[in-house]
Simulated assay, not measured.
Amino acid sequence: MNKITVNEMNHVRPAAVAGLFYPGQPEILRSRVTRLLDEQHQEQHRRLIPSALVVPHAGYDYSGGVAASGYSLLASDPDRARRWRRILLLGPNHRVPLRGIAAPKADLFATPLGSMAVDQTGLAELQQRFDVQVREDVHALEHCLEVQLPFLHELLPSAKLLPLVVGQERPEPVADLIEWAWDQKDILVVISTDLSHYHSYDEACRIDADTEHAILALRSDIVPEQACGAHALNGLLLAAHRRCLSAARLALCNSGDTAAPRDQVVGYGSYVIF
């Protein structure tokens, strides 16, 4: 297994879906992110200090508002948000088969708004403690983490990333890794996942309601047909159950509510663990 060394500097992971999933021009993107955040009002939950956020990763036309409902908890109190100096970002593999958990080789993740640094020292510690492999191929074209970066760059520009793609993996190892992150006190956990895929509108609403019930109950038995990021999500829910935390819904809809027909829709949910 290749090990990360902190001396490998300036290896940049270029933005792969800028101009596709979100605007590629910096000023247009910044305006879009700002508008999405301004449109979200989480008065009921704005005083919560999140231990983790669950947010979707489709194009901003489809799920940007739902994602912003989660990130608005950081925007509501910038001074409080600055406690997060690192972000453990977990999401599923869409393009390259993967068993286990994969870290990038990159030192920087590029976005149209600027680059975000990877916490190589933290990744090295994760490799020592957990079964984390370095897979540049897994990260190269993966969009699920990338689409979160414009929000994170806007809200936490100095935070460093711990970006991991979670393939087929049991909840327990993922939960162990997340609990390690929480023990560091300066790490916000972000799980990137969409919900059901390509069902009729009514069927998707039923499936996503069942999935939401599992999330709010902190059950770690969600399957990929319910959420494409199920393996990372289950780890989060198990860790939250172990720590006696709670979950709350911030937003729930599907692509039939936002920017697509209702014959084959994708579900999107945003949740906070606190």
Rank of each mutant, 00 (worst) to 15 (best):
L98D: 07
Q40P: 08
V189Y: 01
Q184R: 13
C244V: 10
Q44C: 05
C244E: 13
H11Y: 09
L145Y: 03
A260V: 03
A209R: 11
D79T: 04
A106F: 00
P150L: 00
L126C: 15
D137I: 02
G70M: 05
L161F: 02
L88A: 08
C253Y: 07
P157I: 03
D210M: 13
H153R: 14
M9V: 09
L108D: 07
R243K: 12
A124V: 09
I87W: 13
E27R: 04
P171S: 07
R30D: 08
R262W: 08
L156C: 06
E172K: 14
P50E: 06
L161K: 05
E8S: 05
Q25L: 12
R82M: 14
P50S: 04
A248H: 15
E225K: 13
C205E: 13
A103R: 10
G24L: 11
R243T: 00
V138M: 11
R13G: 10
T121Q: 08
W182T: 15
A181H: 09
V165F: 06
S69W: 03
D61S: 14
A68Y: 02
Y62H: 00
P50A: 02
E125H: 11
S51H: 11
A124R: 08
C253H: 00
G114N: 06
L161G: 06
S196C: 04
V96E: 15
R35T: 00
R206I: 09
A52Y: 12
D263N: 07
L89T: 00
S220F: 07
Y62T: 08
L216T: 09
M9L: 10
R82C: 12
Y22V: 08
S51M: 14
C144A: 15
D183E: 14
T193Q: 05
L195I: 02
A227L: 04
M1H: 01
V166Y: 07
L145F: 05
A18H: 06
G19P: 05
A159C: 01
Q127F: 09
